[in-house]
Amino acid sequence: VTLFVALYDYEARTEDDLSAHKGEKFQILNSSEGDWWEARSLTTGETGYIPSNYVAPV
């Protein structure tokens, strides 16, 4: 399991995006899409895309 933590708040801009709150942890499901990674929030269980530069490894 690849875990990352949000460094900043991010507000989803499309229905495919996933909002993130600073300190929230995510499981990365797919990081092969360049700057946008598919992730699952460990807080809400929701999945979507987050900007890779907004997260760091735990």
Rank of each mutant, 00 (worst) to 15 (best):
L3W: 10
S52R: 13
G48D: 00
A39M: 14
A39N: 00
R40E: 05
T44S: 10
Y54V: 15
V1A: 13
T44H: 03
E38D: 04
V5D: 04
F26G: 00
V58I: 13
D35Q: 09
S19R: 07
N30D: 11
F26K: 02
D16L: 14
E33D: 15
S19C: 08
S32C: 14
I28C: 05
D17Y: 13
G45R: 03
S32G: 11
V5N: 00
T43G: 06
Y54I: 15
V58G: 03
T47H: 07
Y8V: 08
W37P: 01
S32A: 11
A20H: 04
L42H: 04
G45C: 11
N30C: 10
L42D: 03
V55L: 15
N30T: 08
D9G: 02
S41Y: 03
G45W: 06
K25D: 01
L42A: 05
S31Q: 13
W37F: 09
L7M: 08
W37Q: 03
L29F: 07
A12S: 09
S19K: 06
R13P: 08
Y49S: 05
V55N: 00
E46P: 01
H21C: 13
Y10H: 04
E38H: 14
V5G: 02
E24H: 02
I50P: 01
E11V: 13
E24G: 02
T47Y: 07
T14P: 02
R13C: 15
H21E: 08
L29I: 11
I28F: 02
A6M: 09
E11W: 09
T14A: 11
F4I: 07
R13Y: 07
D16A: 14
D16H: 15
W36S: 07
Y49Q: 07
D35S: 09
I50K: 01
V5L: 05
T47V: 14
Y49T: 06
E46T: 06
A39G: 04
V58R: 00
V1S: 13
P57C: 08
A39E: 00
W36M: 15
S31Y: 12
S32K: 11
E38Q: 13
L3C: 15
F26H: 00
A12N: 04
V5Q: 07
S41R: 10
Q27R: 08
A6H: 01
G23M: 02
A56D: 05
R13N: 09
K25T: 12
A12Q: 06
D9Y: 06
S52T: 06
P51H: 09
E24A: 01
T2K: 12
G34W: 09
G48C: 06
A6N: 02
V5S: 02
F4V: 14
E24C: 05
V5E: 12
Y8C: 15
S41I: 03
S31A: 13
T14I: 06
L42P: 03
A39W: 04
F4L: 07
F26L: 09
K25I: 15
S41D: 02
G23C: 08
R40M: 12
T44D: 02
Q27S: 07
Y54L: 15
Q27W: 14
T43F: 08
N53A: 14
H21Y: 13
Q27H: 11
E46I: 10
Y8W: 12
V5W: 07
F4H: 08
E46K: 15
G23F: 04
A56W: 09
N30H: 07
D16S: 14
S41H: 04
Y10Q: 00
L7F: 03
P57S: 06
S32Q: 12
N30F: 07
A12C: 06
F26I: 06
G23H: 03
